[in-house]
């Protein structure tokens, strides 16, 4: 049975939300930063098991450094959230825990994955230090550029959503 699930991808601007979606949906990447305004919506059908397929409707929202300002209308009917930050730009994760509280309040009782993107830009030790120093609990560390962990991230969310009613 095909179930449609709306997933919103949130985060500050320039963190790579569009690139993550593009990597997941079309397995491509471009180094050219093209700003997203408003919302871009794409879809990928994911087969969880022979009798369990979900249509992931991915809402790529315009990045903002004020998460509280995201319009409620964009979030209506959301089944899952991916919150992305850029591991190489502190301004995108300095207030991460506050940002996540805002997101959880706006979209309560919804699976949420926290993703540190652009791991190709930092070395492993620096990455660990950044996460520890900023008390960040991250679900996935990805690179849209190399494709690292991108499919794992969306597969994980798809599994969570497939198990929901």
């Amino acid at each position: 049975m095909l179930k449609s699930k709306k997933i919103v991808v949130l985060g500050h601007f320039g963190v790579g939300k569009t690139s993550l979606i593009r990597r997941f949906v079309t397995d491509t990447f471009s180094d050219n930063y093209k700003v997203t305004i408003g919302v871009h919506i794409t879809k990928k059908v994911v087969v969880i098991s022979p009798d369990n397929t979900i249509s992931m409707i991915l809402w790529d929202l315009e990045g903002t450094d004020d998460i509280a300002s995201i319009r409620k209308a964009y979030l209506l009917g959301t089944h899952g959230v991916v919150f992305v930050f850029d591991i190489a730009r502190p301004s995108t994760f300095q207030h991460l825990n506050d940002d996540l509280k805002i997101v959880s309040a706006k979209i309560p009782n919804t699976p949420l994955l926290v993703v540190g993107n652009k791991i190709d830009l930092v070395d492993a030790n620096e990455l660990k230090t950044t996460l520890v120093e900023n008390s960040i609990l991250v679900d996935f560390l990805t690179s849209a550029k190399t494709g690292d962990a991108v499919n794992d991230l969306f597969a994980n969310l798809a599994s969570q959503l497939a198990n929901d009613a």
């Binding site: 449609s4 709306k6 305004i37 408003g38 919302v39 871009h40 919506i41 794409t42 879809k43 249509s55 409707i57 991915l58 809402w59 315009e62 319009r71 209308a73 964009y74 209506l76 009917g77 959301t78 089944h79």
Partner: peptide, 23 residues
């Protein structure tokens, strides 16, 4: 795919929804 998300709106309590800048 945008319209595929409308299913959830049928189910929600909102009578009127405005969405801006949808591609």
């Amino acid at each position: 795919p945008f319209f595929e998300s409308l299913g959830a709106i049928f189910e929600g309590p909102e009578e009127e929804i405005d969405l801006n800048c949808v591609h």
